[in-house]
């Protein structure tokens, strides 16, 4: 493939559609990571929560129609999604219980949960199907796409609004984008959100101001579990309609990086998720040239580290400047 073909495919509307598909399972858990991070309970277990939700959703959607035949298909998909969310919430509860009640280190707890999720999913997968790799033997359902009628006749707009295949984006992609302003409103405009940020900023002070920080942090972990679950469900019931062992492939950890790269703000998280999505999409495109995709894949993590360095260096300079100003003013 020649360079101009690659370039034209990059600067095409289809490329934007690809980015959205890749960014969805990053953006959803990253929003979850944002909430828990701001609540002062950094959630390392996003990865495991995505995995268990992806698995539970597929399994329930495969068995539900056998157990309760005759219901409309959308209700099976909906209930399966809810089951996936519930599974992730159970893990949220475990983290919260161990960290908030038993005072364990939240990072070690999160790692344990990731290991647990990796183990439990493959273990049950094998018990159910005799296969450790995937649920290819199960007929599982998909969370539907949202198709926007009439626009497909307009060439570019059709691709933009309904994706490269013209059959619409997954509902969860829309949910991911919509959740950016929703999370923003929650964090900055609601009482619970303000309490959550206060608890994360300075727990003892928030406690002294009458905020129940423990309950607030439970909430933060539950919400991040729900969002991680949506990301996992997208992978197994949207992007694909199958569960594969370890199919999250580190996306939960990338989500943590996205939170930091996005400067711990909802809009920043959206942009950072798109940057990661674009780099992966670009890597796939450039792989057809002689540019190794690995080089492109290195870009987002490198940007994340550089951004963290710049952010901290500026913060340090600001603190020093403030200290100087304080001295000058007080003299």
């Amino acid at each position: 493939m020649s360079l101009d073909v690659v370039l034209s495919s990059i600067f095409s509307v289809a490329f934007i559609a690809t980015i959205i598909r890749i960014a969805t399972p990053l953006l959803l858990p990253a929003l979850g990571g944002l909430i828990s991070d701001l609540g002062g309970v950094i959630n390392i277990a996003l990865e495991g929560q995505m995995l268990i939700a992806a698995f539970t959703g597929v399994v329930v959607s495969a068995y539900l129609p056998q157990w309760f035949p005759g219901w409309p298909v959308w209700s099976y998909a909906l209930l399966s999604g809810l089951a996936g969310i519930l599974a992730a919430l159970a893990l949220s509860w475990l983290i919260a219980f161990f960290h908030l009640e038993l005072r364990t280190d939240i990072i070690l707890t999160g790692l344990a949960i990731n290991i647990l999720a990796a183990g439990v999913t493959v273990f049950i997968l094998f018990v159910l199907t005799g296969d450790k790799g995937s649920t290819s033997q199960l007929a599982s359902l998909a969370i539907p796409n949202l198709f926007i009628p009439f626009v497909n006749t307009i060439p570019l707009l059709g691709t933009l609004l309904n994706g490269a295949n013209g059959d619409g984006y997954n509902l969860l992609s829309y949910a991911a984008i919509l959740l950016v302003p929703v999370v923003s409103l929650f964090l900055y405009k609601t009482r619970a959100g303000i309490h959550l940020r206060a608890a994360g900023e300075n727990g003892p002070a928030a406690g002294a101001a009458g905020i129940n920080t423990r309950r607030t942090q439970y909430l933060a972990l539950y919400l991040s579990g729900i969002l991680a679950a949506l990301g996992g469900l997208y992978l197994s019931m949207g992007y694909l309609t199958i569960f594969q062992a370890n199919m999250t492939a580190g996306r939960g950890f990338i989500a943590l990086a996205i939170v930091n790269l996005g400067n711990r703000k909802p809009l920043g998280v959206l942009i950072a998720a798109l940057v990661f999505g674009a780099a992966t999409a670009l890597g796939a495109q450039l792989g057809t040239l002689d540019v190794p995709p690995q080089l492109i894949e290195m870009i987002p993590p490198t940007i994340t580290i550089v951004a963290l360095v710049i952010y901290q260096a500026r913060r340090k300079a600001k603190i020093a400047a403030n200290a100087r100003r304080f001295q000058v003013e007080s003299n």
Binding site: F98, T104, L108, A112, I115, G119, V120, V122
Partner: peptide
Amino acid sequence: VTREVVLIIQAVIILLVTAERL
């Protein structure tokens, strides 16, 4: 039985070792 049982055992160990209050 698959070897993933060991992962589950490992996760339980980490949780319990860090939970001194338990």
